[in-house]
Structure formats: C-alpha cells, structure tokens
Amino acid sequence: EICQALATVKVTVNGQDILEAAEGNGPVSALDAALRKALMNFYPMIAEFQLRDYKVRILDGGSGTSAKTRVLVESSNGHQRWTTVGVSTNIIDASYQAVVEGLEYGLLLKQQENPVSVLT
C-alpha cells in the first residue's frame, strides 16, 4: 500500500486568506496539489502547468543534516519548459519555494502570451 502524504497551505490572494489541504504520493506532490487547489479559482490557467522533473542537491555536504538543500523543479505548459529553484536547510521549504516560483513564472509566461491592454 502506498502511503499518502498530506500538505496544508495558507496563502493570501487579493487580500483573501485561503487554507487548503491535499494528498499526494509524496510531500512535494501533496504540496503542489494543495497550492493548485488554493489558487485555481483565482488563476485557472495553472491547470495547464505540469511538474515535469524534481531534483535535489546538497550544497554544503560537510554540514551533515544541517546542510543547505537546493531543489530544482522543471515545469511545463505543454509547449514551453522552465526551471525554478529553491534553497533552504529545510527540504520542504526549498521545495515550496521552487514549486511556487514555477507557478508564478508560468503565470508570467501566460500573461506575456495574452497581454491585457490598459485603456487610459
């Protein structure tokens, strides 16, 4: 039996606090699912984004378990790929940074594809 991980996130979007929880087949999968659940009503285009690759590297191996961890996340929208990074002594925090940056960068790419004209 596969043990499911559970993640809970609290984010503020446009002044509104949103608390969501989700399960995944690991902590990063659960974290990604909870973030998407919290943000989907505000940014429905994130449904197009996929986490394609996840890599972890220890930056200062001599520090043992207190070493800084670098997490690289590769994301895709189906026709473009981008890589984001998170760094922390806490692997979950580093993963969170990289996943959030991936979603934000994907939204920026989407905004560049469909710029909103501002009338003055």
Rank of each mutant, 00 (worst) to 15 (best):
A33K: 05
L6E: 13
S29K: 11
E48T: 11
P115R: 04
L119K: 13
A47V: 13
E20G: 10
E104A: 10
Q16D: 07
C3T: 13
Q97V: 02
Y54K: 06
Q50P: 02
Q80E: 12
R52H: 12
G78D: 00
V11T: 11
V56T: 13
N90M: 01
E1T: 11
L19N: 14
G26C: 04
A67Y: 01
I91Y: 00
E101W: 09
S117I: 12
G62H: 15
F42C: 04
A94C: 00
V73K: 03
M45N: 14
V85E: 15
L103E: 04
A5P: 08
A34Q: 03
Y54N: 07
P27V: 09
A30M: 11
L108S: 15
H79D: 12
V71I: 06
V118R: 13
G62E: 15
C3A: 12
D53R: 07
G15E: 02
D32W: 04
L39A: 06
Q111C: 05
N114I: 10
T65A: 11
A98L: 00
A30W: 05
S88Y: 02
S66I: 04
R36G: 07
A7W: 06
I92N: 02
I91S: 00
R70Y: 10
Q80A: 09
Q4T: 10
E23F: 15
I18E: 14
D32F: 00
Y54H: 05
N114R: 09
Q112W: 02
G86H: 04
G15C: 07
E48A: 15
L31Q: 04
S63W: 00
I92Q: 07
L119M: 09
A21W: 04
S88M: 03
S88L: 09
R36F: 07
A67F: 03
A34D: 05
E48I: 12
M45W: 08
Q50W: 02
V56K: 05
Q4Y: 13
G26P: 01
L35K: 04
W82K: 08
V100G: 05
T12V: 08
V99C: 05
V56N: 03
L39E: 03
M40K: 13
I2G: 11
I91Q: 00
A7E: 09
D32V: 03
S76F: 13
A21K: 14
A38S: 07
V100C: 10
N14R: 15
A33N: 14
K68L: 09
T84K: 08
T69V: 15
N25W: 06
A21M: 13
D60L: 00
Y43L: 07
L108A: 14
Q97M: 07
Q112D: 13
L119T: 14
G102Y: 10
T83G: 05
V99Y: 01
C3N: 09
I91P: 02
A47F: 10
G102P: 09
V56P: 01
Q50M: 06
K37P: 10
E101C: 12
S76M: 10
W82P: 04
V118D: 15
G26H: 00
A22W: 03
G106M: 06
T69E: 05
S75N: 05
V11L: 15
V87R: 01
G15Y: 04
F49V: 02
